[in-house]
Design a protein around this nucleic acid. Structure first.
Length: 678
DNA sequence: AACCAAAAGTTTTTT
DNA sequence: ACTTTTGGTT
């Protein structure tokens, strides 16, 4: 019986018990969990999981190997705390993705009852947003600030760079994309620009003055326009907690228990936030696996998990080593895989599922024969009644799957792709969102620029003048509506003024506003993009997403904080996903999930590990952990796919060796196959 | 100053 | 292959 079934079975058990039927109000005083339910938990958890779930108070660190029931442990513990009388609203569960939080609360609810829905859960970023929306003025922001995503940050920096660095640019100045990377790293690691540039971008050292100026411009622009990027959410929250001890007491005091999932992927700021929230009561449980730390490019530091006991003295450490997911032959491989890591906590996972197929390394001819092999194998698995959604193809980078996607389309095999391009990054989506944004935050120059540049005869200069006119009146949207329009621009601007006049009334729901914006925007869409019918479908999808909201602002922030991932076909992450589909995913997006059969494509040296990382031992270690995460997703079958050769345009190199991480593994752990269909 | 066409440079991973 | 930058024309 797998984890999900166990959870379901125990739900029934607990529901039938008398505990659950007692009204919640009677149990506000702290009582010990009734023996019967406690015994039931004991049969459903292994010894170490049980220890963690019934750990009373004080700091707890759970090192949870892949597939060892990490989610289960957190879920049971949350349910147990609620059962023993901790008000659910006083439990804070921080996770890495919204999906993970929802899943855990759902499972806890099944395990116990609806009270678990009240547990405060979400990502660090969404938690920060919730706090800051209330206390933004304390950090110099208005209540209604706008959250910007990476693409927004890039265009803002692009605009600033253009204004600041006029004249011919001497070729090697960093692109805005790189500038965002640099600023973000500095923020997440709390280091100065110089250190980041010296460490990772030493070739830009001659420009460090200009870069620093731009960073200051960027910070100033965000403040002026009431914009916060992802990093700001964390930094401002941290600042708030650190500088105002009364607020810290108030916010931290709301939560009696703090639980953090995926602790290995937190960065320095997040670790400090955790400390500030928990250092008074020390009721802090963090769960993670140093071997699965795969976000250092984003400033995550897996040493956080190792330093945790120093931060919280008298931390109890528990290690989960029994793997419930994979058959023993797969575990034999993954154990040997992670053995190659230079730096790690020693642990050895074991499985009781002794019988199973050994993993295979499949050599194929061309890239297309790699795709064909997968299609054939999927047909075979379907004949064995393996559901399509229990099969996944994983890859290092989104574009690695292009050929496979073509082949799947040809063969009529339904699939969903996670990772890679994001719905929210489409230009037409951003266009429509910009119109919504200025309604909640009229100082958002970035969005104004986007809106105005869509209009005929308005270029960068005119847009800037118009924006200055709007802001200088300090009347927000009314400034724009009351503005006198030069005759030359009247044709273009009048319809926009008309639009905003109609939608500024407060009592319209987002979907009505959206429909009105779309009516205005559609002609511009048609003029701009020759594939407008497809894009219009996306926009209608966006309108459907607004239906759940009765105010614009929560819609805008949630769509930025939890962007839906693109699914092929007619479903985007938020809708109800079709059941019968193959899963294609980047390894990063596959974290925490599992499948009956897993294919890892392009397990080729230079692609995986990507050879941008082969120089630096730390980065190489991270690639190895990434391969480890990919391989540990499989329950029954694991295939590494390696085409004969591929040329890499950037380096001009011809790649032909299998990934260095698996090439040296002995035959009894990794079976070599050749699958040239031709 | 806006718009368009040709040329050049770039590529992970995500809240 | 795809965006971003450039140069020239209206």
């Amino acid at each position: 019986m797998d984890g999900a079934n166990l959870a379901r079975a125990s739900t029934r058990n607990c529901r039938d018990g008398s505990i659950v039927n007692a009204p919640a109000a009677q149990r506000n005083d702290k009582v010990k969990m009734p023996l019967a339910c406690r015994e039931r938990f004991r049969t459903e958890l292994n010894a170490v999981q049980y220890e963690a779930v019934f750990h009373d108070s004080g700091p707890l660190l759970v090192i949870a190997g892949a597939g060892s029931g990490k989610t289960r442990t957190l879920t049971y513990r949350a349910a147990r705390l609620v059962e023993e009388g901790v008000p659910p609203g006083r439990i804070l569960l921080l996770t890495f993705t919204r999906k993970a939080a929802d899943e855990m609360l759902k499972r806890a609810t099944l395990l116990l009852d609806h009270r678990c829905r009240q547990i405060a859960g979400g990502t660090f970023h969404s938690f920060a947003y919730r706090v800051l929306r209330r206390y933004a003025p304390q950090v110099g922001f208005p209540h209604r600030f706008t959250i910007i995503d990476r693409a927004d940050a890039e265009s803002l920096i692009g605009m600033l760079a253009k204004a600041r660095l006029s004249g011919p640019r001497h070729g090697a100045f960093p692109r805005k994309r790189t500038l965002v990377d640099i600023f973000s790293k500095a923020a997440n690691k709390d280091l100065g620009l110089e250190e980041i540039i010296d460490d990772e971008y030493s070739h830009f050292r001659p420009y460090s003055d200009e870069i620093r100026t731009l960073q200051a411009d960027y910070v100033a622009a965000k403040t002026e326009q009431a914009l916060m990027d992802y990093d700001d959410l964390l930094i401002k929250l941290h600042h708030l907690l650190e500088s105002q001890s009364d607020l810290q007491q108030q916010i931290a005091g709301q939560f009696a228990h703090l639980m953090v999932d995926e602790y290995q992927d937190t960065n320095l700021i997040q670790a400090r936030i955790v400390y500030l929230l928990a250092h008074q009561h020390h009721n802090i449980m963090v769960v993670g696996d140093d071997s699965q730390s795969i976000y250092s490019f984003r400033g995550a530091n897996f040493r956080n998990i190792m330093d945790f006991p120093e931060l919280f003295p008298q931390t109890r450490i528990l290690t989960l080593e029994e793997n419930y997911r994979s058959v023993a032959p797969i575990l034999a491989l993954t154990n040997q895989l992670i053995e190659q890591a230079v730096e790690k906590y020693p642990k050895h996972l074991f499985s009781r599922k002794a019988i199973g197929n050994p993993p295979a390394l499949v050599h194929t001819g061309s890239e297309n024969s790699q795709s064909r092999f997968i299609v054939d194998k999927i047909r075979e698995l379907r004949r064995e009644e393996v559901p399509l959604e229990d099969i996944a193809v994983l890859f290092r980078a989104g574009f690695h799957a292009f050929d496979l996607e073509l082949e799947l389309n040809r063969e009529g095999i339904a699939y969903v792709k996670y990772g890679g391009f994001k719905f929210m990054e489409f230009a037409h989506i951003k266009d429509v969102l910009a119109h919504m944004r200025v309604l909640t935050n009229p100082y958002d120059r970035l969005s104004w620029a986007r809106i105005l540049l869509l209009i005929d005869k308005i270029g960068p200069k005119t847009a800037e003048r118009l924006y200055d006119a709007i802001v200088s009146r300090a009347e927000g949207l009314h400034g724009f509506l009351a503005m006198e329009v030069p005759p030359r621009l009247e044709g273009g601007l009048a319809p926009l003024q008309e639009l905003f006049r109609e939608v500024e009334d407060a009592d319209q729901v987002p979907v009505e506003i959206g429909e009105r914006i779309l009516t205005y925007y559609h002609p511009l869409l048609v003029k701009r993009y020759d594939d407008h019918p497809k894009r219009l479908l996306h926009l209608e999808q966006l309108l459907m997403m607004t239906e759940k909201y009765d105010r614009l602002e929560p819609f805008l922030s949630s769509v930025t904080l939890e962007p839906p991932s693109v699914a092929i076909g007619d479903t985007f992450g938020t809708g109800n996903p079709r059941k019968d589909h193959l899963v294609l995913s980047t390894v990063h997006s596959a974290k925490g999930l599992e499948w009956h059969t897993v294919f890892i494509i392009w397990a080729m040296d230079g692609r995986f590990p990507s050879f941008m990382s082969t120089e630096d031992p730390d980065q190489l270690d991270e690639e190895l952990r990434l391969m480890y995460v990919a391989a540990t997703r499989a329950r029954e079958n694991l295939f590494f796919m390696c085409p004969d050769q591929a040329y890499d345009r950037i380096s001009g190199m011809i790649l032909s060796r299998p990934s260095r991480f698996i090439d040296g593994l002995p035959e009894d752990v990794l079976v070599r196959q050749s699958a040239d269909i031709w």
